[in-house]
Every structure is written in structure tokens, then in C-alpha cells.
């Protein structure tokens, strides 16, 4: 089938798949960012067991393949009497792994903040959480806009895991299998999905650059 035949027949399905990928990406990234921030605060807090737990978390989820994590969530959790929908399983897998990377990027961003600013905050009478809120997080986030942009793209690519479980509507990778079991789309069906991934990634990259230029801290 040609690109045009594929698009005329499955254009609507592709749009739906693109939206599903976008939605998964957005939700997963939001979760990854939130979890990443919490883990990072744990990793720098004055309570040692929390620091160890945070480091452990990052080591686990930075080093586990997404497919393996998804298999654990889908097939192993039911043994613990936890049966999650496929959607929740995919969302969990695609947010836990990026959350570990998110924490690493934030730690790197924090290293660029001088110890002097932290001392200044302490001498103003700020407590740990106020220092995090006022001085550390805002600067760490601004310093890590570009790595976070990459993380968002990586998160989007990780959402292709959705194709490995039955989902309706399915995502951009899942739609290829859907089409190829019903028609002879061949590699062209893949190509269309690939182009849609690419366009999204380029757009994310541009927006990331814009944000970085806007929030960059003069030194």
C-alpha cells in the first residue's frame, strides 16, 4: 500500500494513535518530573536513610529495561493481588524509568549552584525546605532545561512500550501492528509513525531551546 492509501484508510487511526502517544508522554513526563523532584529532595535531605533510599531508587530504575519493568508490572504484580489496567502499567513503566534520569539531571543542575548561596540562605534563617523551594530547585530546574528536553523525547520513545500490551486506542507503534495484521502496510506503515515521532521530537526540541533561552541564569 502506498502512503496515500494508508493515510486515506487509516488516517483517523493514526491521529488517534498520535494523540494517545502525546497523552501518555505528557502524563508520564509530568509524573517523572514530580517523582524525580521528590527523589532528589530525599537524596540531599539531612536524614541518612532517606538519602540511601533515594540513591537506591535511582540505581534501580535507571538500570532496568523498560520492557522488563512492564513485564514485571503486568505479570508479576497480580501475584501480589495487584491487578492494574494495561494503561496504568504502561504509564507506570514509562514514568518510573525517566524519573530516575530526571533526578540525575537535577542533581547535576544542583552541582552548579555555589555552596555560598546555600550558606546565604541558611544565614537568612531559611529551613531545609525553604532553601530547597527558594534557592535550590528553581536554579536546578533552570540549569536542566536542555537535559529535561532530551528526557521528554526519551519518555515519548519509551511510550512505544504501549504497543506490547493490548490497548484501545493504541499508540503510534501499536498502530503499525494493528494495520499490518489487517492490510499489507509493510514498512510504509512504520514510516508514517516514525515521521510523526520525529515531528513531535523536533517540536519538543524547539520549545526546549526557547524555554532554556528564556530562563537561563546569567553568571
Amino acid at each position: 500500500m502506498s502512503v496515500f492509501e494508508l493515510l486515506s484508510q487509516y488516517g483517523g487511526k493514526y491521529m488517534l494513535a498520535l494523540l494517545t502517544t502525546w497523552k501518555l508522554t505528557f502524563l508520564a513526563f509530568l509524573l517523572a518530573l514530580s517523582i524525580g523532584i521528590i527523589i532528589t529532595i530525599m537524596r540531599i535531605c539531612p536524614i541518612k536513610p532517606l538519602r540511601i533510599a533515594g540513591d537506591f531508587y535511582v540505581q534501580i530504575f535507571r538500570n532496568i529495561p523498560g520492557a522488563a519493568l512492564l513485564i514485571v508490572l503486568v505479570y508479576a504484580l497480580p501475584y501480589l493481588n495487584l491487578v492494574w489496567s494495561y494503561y496504568v502499567c504502561v504509564l507506570t513503566a514509562t514514568s518510573l524509568i525517566p524519573s530516575a534520569f530526571c533526578s540525575e539531571y537535577l542533581m547535576a543542575g544542583m552541582n552548579t549552584i555555589g555552596a555560598g548561596q546555600i550558606e546565604a540562605a541558611r544565614s537568612l534563617g531559611m529551613t531545609f525546605f525553604k532553601i530547597i523551594k527558594n534557592v535550590v530547585l528553581p536554579q536546578a530546574l533552570r540549569f536542566s532545561v536542555l537535559p529535561m528536553t532530551n528526557l521528554l523525547v526519551a519518555t515519548m520513545l519509551t511510550t512505544a512500550l504501549a504497543s506490547q500490551v493490548p490497548m484501545n486506542p493504541t499508540d503510534l507503534t501499536g498502530i503499525v501492528s494493528y494495520i499490518n495484521t489487517r492490510a499489507v502496510g509493510g514498512v510504509t506503515a512504520f514510516l508514517i509513525s516514525a515521521i510523526l515521532y520525529c515531528i513531535t521530537a523536533v517540536f519538543i526540541g524547539q520549545v526546549g531551546n526557547l524555554i532554556d533561552r528564556k530562563v537561563r541564569i546569567l553568571r
Binding site: Q117, A120, R122, S123, G125, T127, Q139, I217, R219
Partner: peptide, 23 residues
């Protein structure tokens, strides 16, 4: 702890490297 922060707030500090909040 919190009580230390409260007392620190009563004593100003000016550093060699200024240490203004860059952002």
C-alpha cells in the same frame, strides 16, 4: 533544626563572595 534557623535569622551575614541568589 528549626530553632537554629530562627536564631540565625536574627544575625545577618555578609560573605566574601557576596553569595546573592543568582536567579
Amino acid at each position: 533544626g528549626r530553632h537554629l534557623a530562627e536564631i540565625r535569622a536574627q544575625v545577618g551575614m555578609v560573605f566574601q563572595a557576596f553569595n546573592l541568589f543568582a536567579h
